[in-house]
Design a protein around this nucleic acid. Structure first.
Length: 376
RNA sequence: GUGGGAUUGGCGUAGCUGGUUAACGCGCCAGUUUGUGGCACUGGAGACCACCGGUUCGAAUCCGGUAUCCCACC
């Protein structure tokens, strides 16, 4: 299902074939946690911003509107009207981000709903059942994303449990895919590497899960507070042990520079809330660096956000207009900003693929890593 | 006309039994945001406390007057 087309150093150009279409990699997944990209962006807009794949969240959709309802309405593709690939995050990250309301046991995790406080339970089987009901293209294994920093012993025990959970996920997924009434009988499953900042735990875990013949391999538990250098080191440590013939996904990352660095180190797939969240707060990514549109200097600036951008926002609207809309709290301001940032990310990935095709990625990497993070 | 109340950074207010750098919200300015509980979070600039005078070691705070505004009554 994953075809490695070309390599330049460790950087990989590939294709990931799914029942909902082929993803050209490296690729960025557009985050639509509750079935919509925050900022009033629908599946119809995704066609115009070079989106290949979107990411929805198991935990959030389970609570609202309920995975049973989504299944009754034909599944997440029919529901959101996006017919391309959809990856569902397992709810594992919510174990981490809702830490104050959780109780982790061998069988799974007891949460309190953030909506009404009601007690809910999610384990590997429940997560797979929910993701099967949603009918996503790719299901993520149910894992624990340990907070950073965590003690070695805690992390070790957690990783071992995450492995046991992964085996249960795989078994449950096989059962569900064999059922008559399953929406997507070819639902894929990705495993998730954990181990905090401990290289030996990371490497051992990756070796262990590499033998399970999963559809893809994610690196989780990074970009959760550790220095970016530590993140890069862990990618370097783990990469040699990730199967060469499987797609690699770095969860939750990151800035354009982070992505560039990770592609350089052999990662194929990304997702991050940063382009959408930062857009809503006025921070826009451009080829010259990062712009804060709230800044007073844009009050009379009639240029587009990025002169080198062909997105619907930049083709039509000025920095001054966007600044005005954002300052006024108009929804349109967020929408136009989110559209720009997601287009920038998706286009950025397209350019990376192009450079890999041409064999000029390393040159591009060396130049852009100095530019993309600067504030302008 | 009489009585009562008000006047504090751009706006709305707190502080008023007198005591070091006058507080808060909004706005403004800047920064943060990494598998999205939250259109968020952090920081900053900005006020001779309406004006004039008095009491006091010391007044945004007490007293007198002036101005403007609000309410009630005639």
């Amino acid at each position: 299902m994953f075809k490695l087309i070309k390599k330049e150093g460790n950087a990989r150009r590939g294709e990931f074939v799914t029942p909902h279409g082929t993803i050209q990699t490296p690729a960025f997944m557009n985050v639509a946690t509750c079935g919509a990209i925050k900022g009033a962006v629908s599946a119809l807009d995704l066609k115009n911003i070079k989106c290949q794949v979107q990411l929805c969240n198991t935990y959030h959709l389970h609570l609202r509107p309920g995975d049973g309802n989504v299944k009754a309405l034909g599944g997440i593709h029919q529901f959101t009207r996006w017919d391309g690939p959809i990856l569902t995050d397992s709810g594992g990250f919510q174990v981490f981000s809702l830490a104050k309301l959780r109780n982790i046991k061998e069988e799974g995790v007891y949460f309190n709903s953030h909506i009404d406080g009601r007690k809910i339970f999610m384990g590997p089987e429940e997560s797979m059942q929910i993701q099967s009901n949603l009918g996503s293209t790719i299901a993520m294994a149910f894992d624990e994303c340990v907070e950073n920093p965590s003690p070695y012993e805690y992390t070790k025990n957690s990783v071992e449990r995450t492995t046991r959970w992964l085996i249960r996920c795989k078994e449950k997924m096989a059962q569900l895919n064999a059922r008559e009434d399953t929406i997507n009988k070819k639902q894929m499953l990705f495993g998730i590497n954990q181990g905090g900042i401990y290289h030996d735990l990371r490497v051992n875990h990756m070796k262990e899960i590499a033998g399970l013949n999963l559809d893809g391999y994610a690196i989780g538990g990074l970009a959760v507070g550790e220095p970016t250098e530590v993140m890069y080191e862990i990618i370097e440590a783990v990469e040699p042990f990730a199967p060469k013939d499987k797609i690699r996904y770095l969860m939750g990352v990151g800035t354009p520079v982070n992505i560039l660095e990770a592609v350089h180190r052999g990662v194929d797939l990304f997702d991050c809330v940063m382009p959408s969240r930062n857009a809503r707060h006025g921070q826009l990514f451009t080829w010259n660096g990062v712009r804060n549109l709230n800044n007073a200097k844009y009050e009379l600036d009639s240029a587009p956000v990025d002169e080198h951008c062909d997105c619907p926002t930049c083709r039509n609207f000025s920095r001054a207009y966007l600044r005005h809309l954002l300052k006024s709290g108009e929804m349109l301001g967020m929408r136009l900003a989110v559209i720009h940032n997601l287009y920038f990310y998706n286009n950025f990935m397209e350019i990376i693929r192009q450079k890999l095709d041409e064999g000029t990625f390393e040159e591009f990497y060396a130049k852009q890593r100095e530019i993309l993070g600067v504030r302008i």
